[in-house]
Write a protein that binds this DNA or RNA. Structure first.
Length: 464
DNA sequence: TGAAATGTTGGGGCG
DNA sequence: ACGCCCCAACATTTC
């Protein structure tokens, strides 16, 4: 009789889980474990609590009991291996910089002890070591990278595990003891109106999107007032859906507009590109990808706090930041607008914005978040040119023309006509302006034109 | 996955 | 009738 350990990370599913699948194929008993990382963002702690509950249930139905542990992964794994005489340890490749280091050490020690250990790709569509440009260098531009991926991609058949014989539970933590849910105050109280963590909720979202929004995705993804996006990102981040499952599902959707499918799949491509960059440049989260773009960042706690709280006086910015606070997510277009505003109009270091997103976004992801912020700040791979500065008024008028998005998240402006709602000056001049500014909605915290010119000047001096 | 400044064109008002 | 000017509307360039 042989027993294997399977280490779960952000792959909280049981199907299309290569490590779990192999363990179940090769061994009589399988012990799945999850080790908690207290460095996780606050919003994600809420998610992972519920997702682990769901995973426990799913594993239990297959005869497996999820062990929950805190502490150093290496100590925990070695202790289990020695105490229970385990025959093998399996896991999907770690995808964070820290996780890679941790698991490399685990593999080394297991090798040293002569304990079988195997790692699998559970998170990516392509092996990042196999994608190169035609000259053999690391790809730094999205389009050729993604074309190469699409050509090399192999989507495996579904990996479905069968039930194992039930084991006696190991001594492990109780999920409730981790106190992952916020109390006093419970700022996550609205989250469950928007989200159902775990595979069941993930599949519901995938089905809903494939049958509905997918066809119109190419256009509506930018439409802030409509539910045009898939909202799958937290489920993808925690690995409740495999990329292969998503890829298969959208490909099978009959009658879907091929352009919608193509654009949606290309979003998986941007994720893939971010992971590729992080794999080859482990400093992506803390250093400029383009080293020379070391902007003269400013530190201003007052404007930073206004940005975080959605009190900048620019309706589209405030709507985005409040959507983030209330729901743990933000429309991608809105992310571009608020991050351009923070880095360019407020001249705030992109790492400061990235840290706030890591703490508040349910889908916060080291690779995507770092690559995205660097892209906006102009120091990333295939980045927006430094002079591309979004005007929040124009962006609002363009992508939220009837003001639906602003009115939903900034209720102070609910009665302001759509014609003026994105422009603070026009609101002030309208009959609704009196009493609004300086009252319960803030006046703009910066002058758009001045800050734009200042940013251009600062960026220009970098290149001189 | 920009915005603003600058350049060009063409219709219409007007002397 | 004709040239001139104005200025949208659109295109191009620049940041």
């Amino acid at each position: 009789m042989s027993t294997a350990l399977v280490c779960f990370q952000n792959d909280l599913r049981i199907d299309d889980h290569p490590a779990l699948y192999q363990a179940c194929q090769n061994h009589d008993f399988v012990i799945p474990i999850y080790v908690y990382d207290p460095g996780m963002g606050s919003a994600q702690k809420w998610w992972v609590h519920h997702s682990l509950r769901a995973l426990q249930q799913q594993l239990s139905e297959k005869g497996m009991i999820l062990g929950l542990y805190r502490g150093k992964v290496q100590d925990i794994v070695m202790n289990l291996v020695k105490t229970h005489g385990l025959d093998a340890v399996y896991w999907n490749h770690a995808i964070t910089v820290q996780g890679k280091g941790v698991y490399a050490a685990v593999a080394k020690q297991l090798d040293h002890m002569g304990v079988k250990n195997q790692q699998f790709n559970g998170h990516l569509l392509c092996n990042p070591d196999q994608i190169r440009t035609s000259t053999g260098s690391i790809a730094k531009v999205f389009t050729p990278f993604w074309r190469h991926c699409l050509q090399n991609m192999v989507i495996p058949d579904p990996m479905i595990i069968s039930a194992k014989d039930r084991m006696v539970p190991l001594v492990s933590d109780d999920l409730d003891d981790w106190s992952l849910l916020p109390q006093h105050p419970n700022w996550a109280k609205e989250f469950d109106q928007h989200w159902q963590p775990g595979v069941t909720g993930a599949v519901k979202k995938l089905e809903h999107f494939a049958e509905g929004g997918l066809s119109h995705y190419a256009i509506r993804r930018n439409d802030l007032g409509k539910e045009g996006v898939s909202s799958l990102s937290p489920h993808i981040h925690f690995g409740e859906l495999s990329l292969w499952q998503i890829y298969r599902r959208v490909g099978q959707q009959t009658g879907a507009d091929p352009e919608g499918v193509r654009v949606f799949i290309s979003q998986l491509g941007w994720r893939e590109f971010s992971y590729y960059l992080l794999h080859h440049f482990p400093h992506l989260p803390d250093q400029n990808f383009k080293e020379k773009m070391n902007f003269p960042w400013k530190t201003d706690e007052t404007t930073l706090t206004a940005w975080k709280k959605g009190q900048t006086g620019f309706p589209i910015i405030d709507a985005g930041m409040r959507q983030l606070w209330h729901t743990g997510t933000m429309n991608n277009r809105a992310r571009l607008i608020v991050s351009s505003f923070l880095t360019k109009n407020l001249m705030t270091d992109w790492r400061v914005g990235a840290a706030w997103f890591m703490d508040t976004l349910l889908d916060a992801d080291e690779a995507n978040n770092s690559a995205g912020w660097q892209w906006v700040a102009g120091c990333g791979a295939d980045a927006a040119p430094y002079f591309r500065i979004f005007n929040p008024i124009l962006q609002g008028q363009k992508f939220d023309p009837d003001g639906t998005y602003v009115k939903r998240w900034v209720p102070e402006l609910a009665d302001v006509p759509a014609r003026v709602i994105h422009d603070p000056e026009k609101i002030r001049a309208s009959s609704h302006g009196s009493g609004l500014f300086g009252g319960h909605y803030p006046a703009p915290i910066v002058d758009l034109d001045e800050t734009r010119q200042a940013a251009l000047q600062a960026y220009k001096e970098l290149t001189d």
